[in-house]
Design a protein around this nucleic acid. Structure first.
Lengths: 149, 149
DNA sequence: GCTGGACTTGACGTCGGTGTCAAGGCATAC
DNA sequence: GTATGCCTTGACACCGACGTCAAGTCCAGC
C-alpha cells in the first residue's frame, strides 16, 4: 500500500509517516515510480508507535519497541530494552503524579476547598511543564491553538 | 534597583524579566540613562509570577494574579479573575491526574507489577528540572493532543 | 490532451520560556 | 586611557512532532 493508505489505516498523517522514516523508525520499499510501498507489518509498526505516543512516550522512546517488532517478536515490549523503557516511564509518570497531586492540593487549598476526597502528599510542589505533557485541553485565552485539533 | 539585582533577588534571569515586560506583565520606570528601575513591589510581582510558573501555570495565566496585585490587593489571588484561573487549573490538573493514573496502571500492567504502592512522597526523587533529566535522553511525556485518536 | 488526485523532496512555521550572541552605551575603578 | 561590568535593544536558537506550502512527478479517467 502507499503512504496515503497507510496513514489512513493508522489514523495519522503522511507527514508523520515521513517524519518517522526520517527518524529511522520506519522504512519503505519503493515502487518503480519512487512511491513508498508498505505492507501490513509496517502498519503494525506505526500502530505501535502511535499507541505509545498517545500514552505519553516521546517518539525516541518508541524506538526499542519498533526494533523489537522488527526483529521478529510478536509484540514490541517483548525485548529487554523495551521493558527498560517501560520501567523508566513508569517511574517518570509516578513522579509526575506525585507533583501533580501536590499541585492539586495546593490549588484546592487556595480555593478554600477543604473537602478532600483522596489522600495525598504535601511537601513537594513541582510540576514542570504542563504544556509538554499529555494534557487535556489548555483554554489559553491568547491562542486558539491551531496545532491541536 | 536595576534589572540584574531584581533578577538575582527573584531567582531568575534578566532575560526573563525583559520577557515578562514584553508580555505586559511587568513595567519599569527608567533612570536617566535608560536603565530599568524597580522597587520592592516589582519584586512581589515577579515572585508571584515565578511561583505560579513553578507550579505549572502558563505565563499568560499569571496575568490576572499580577493585575490583582497591581490593583492594590494584598495577594494575587484576591480577585475573582484569579480565582477563576485557579478553578480552571484545578480542573485541568485533576483531569490530567486521572489520565496519568490510567497510564501508570497501564504501565504497571505491562511490567507485570502486581504490587500496588500508593503515591508516597518519600520514595520519589525530585530533579531540579524534570524536563531535562540528566538521563540518557529521557524527555518528559510530551504527547499531549491526541489530535483525533 | 486535460484535469485532478496522490505522490515526491525540501524547507519554513508553530508553541513557550527562555539562552545566548551581537554591538553598542554608560559608569566606576585603576 | 582603558579595563571591567552592568545596562540597552534586537534577533536567532532551542526542543518535538508535526502542519503546511511550494514545485514538480506520476497515473487514471474522460
Amino acid at each position: 500500500m502507499r503512504i496515503g493508505e497507510l496513514a489512513r489505516k493508522a489514523g495519522t498523517s503522511t507527514r508523520s509517516l515521513r517524519y518517522y522514516e526520517e527518524q529511522g523508525l520506519l522504512s519503505a520499499r519503493r515502487t518503480a515510480n519512487g512511491h513508498r510501498d508498505y505492507d501490513e507489518s509496517d502498519l503494525r509498526l506505526v500502530n505501535e508507535i502511535r499507541g505509545l505516543l498517545t500514552i505519553g512516550f516521546a517518539l525516541e522512546e518508541t524506538r526499542p519497541f519498533v526494533e523489537c517488532l522488527r526483529s521478529g517478536h510478536e509484540t514490541g515490549d517483548a525485548c529487554p530494552a523495551s521493558v527498560e523503557v517501560y520501567r523508566r516511564k513508569l517511574a517518570e509518570v509516578e513522579d509526575y503524579l506525585t507533583r501533580l497531586t501536590s499541585v492539586r492540593d495546593h490549588l484546592r487549598t487556595q480555593l478554600g476547598k477543604t473537602d478532600d476526597q483522596e489522600e495525598s502528599c504535601t511537601a513537594l510542589q513541582l510540576y514542570p511543564d504542563p504544556c509538554r505533557v499529555p494534557e487535556p485541553s489548555t483554554p489559553s485565552p491568547t491562542t486558539t491553538s491551531p496545532k491541536r485539533s
